[in-house]
């Protein structure tokens, strides 16, 4: 039997993610890819994978998978902090662990943070679509959301043993600080709105998802009415829909849109956004 994983507990929302699709935005194809890129890369490094190998991304409740095939599989659970077990026996979080054939690797519910990353030596190798194995939840490209009983193939391992086995994982901050570059449509908002955005206390809304981090807080008033002709949107764009509440675009964001973008959050800060649970305080800080 070839190496693979059988989904024992799918969790609230578990998807396959790699670096995502680039070069197709002009056809309306979102980037997709792991929301917490540093966590994905670190998890891959710990099992000896290339940094762009596909991993599992879990949401809040973790997941459990059984190793199929004849050989043990080196795996790691990182990202959101959680209890980790192999066949019910606790093992270390954030460090590589050998999972024997037939054994179940369980990533428990997140204790801090939101999205967990499970990397396996060889990487997950479902059929790529437009050069990526990432699930794109906006347009439905890539492998579907995991369900119990699904079987996912694993790739061949490179044979090289990972050169590290313990690393410092970034903690989850109590407050999400997002460095904001104003524009391109900051002139669609009043000066007061821009001051509000960079001084007021916002919170992560529970309506956030892989498309966008929605916020709750004071609404931003526009300086002009009317519709913005549809234009290209970047990762990290802070779009302001008619309700005035800023939405930070994450990896499954639409490629074009008609609501004005008041500013753009530096991509490097979005890993924190991936781990911010609803209710987390958010501050936008002008760069």
């Amino acid at each position: 039997m070839s190496a693979g994983l059988e989904v024992v507990r799918a969790g609230a929302l578990t998807t396959v993610q790699d670096e995502g699709r680039t070069g197709w935005a002009h056809l309306g194809v979102p980037r997709a890819g792991a929301l917490d890129g540093p966590a994905r890369r670190l998890a891959n490094r710990l099992v000896g994978n290339a940094p762009d190998a596909a991993v599992l991304e879990t949401t809040l409740t973790g997941c459990a998978v059984r190793v199929t095939g004849a050989r043990p599989v080196l795996a790691v659970v990182g990202g959101a902090g959680c209890r980790v077990a192999v066949d019910g026996r606790p093992v270390a979080w954030g460090a590589p662990v050998r999972v024997p054939p037939g054994a179940v690797l369980e990533a428990g519910p997140a204790l801090h943070g939101l999205r967990g990353y499970l990397a396996f030596a060889g990487g997950l190798v479902p059929e790529p679509v437009l050069g990526s194995r990432s699930a794109d939840l906006l347009s439905g490209l890539g492998p579907p959301v995991l369900r119990e009983g699904d079987v996912l193939p694993l790739g061949r391992t490179g044979g090289g043993a990972p050169c590290v086995d313990t690393v410092p994982w970034p903690g989850v901050p109590a407050e999400l600080v997002l460095p904001l570059y104003p524009g391109p449509r900051d002139d669609w908002f009043t000066g007061a709105a821009l001051r509000t955005l960079t001084t007021a206390a916002y919170r992560v809304s529970e309506r956030s998802n892989r498309i966008g981090l929605r916020t709750e807080g004071p609404a931003l008033r526009r300086a002009r009415d009317g519709e913005l002709p549809s234009e290209g949107m970047v990762l990290g764009a802070v779009q302001v829909p008619p309700d005035g509440l800023p939405v930070v675009f994450l990896h499954d964001h639409p490629t074009t849109g008609g609501y004005p973008v008041v500013g753009v959050v530096d991509e490097a800060a979005l890993a924190g956004a991936a781990q911010a649970v609803p209710g987390t305080p958010v501050r936008f800080v002008r760069v």
């Binding site: 680039t22 070069g23 935005a25 002009h26 002709p229 549809s230 234009e231 290209g232 949107m233 970047v234 490629t255 074009t256």
Partner: peptide, 15 residues
């Protein structure tokens, strides 16, 4: 550049 994305009256150059 990574992406060239036309819009109604714009072209976005990303990356």
């Amino acid at each position: 550049v990574r992406e060239i994305v036309p819009g109604a009256r714009t072209v976005l150059l990303d990356g």
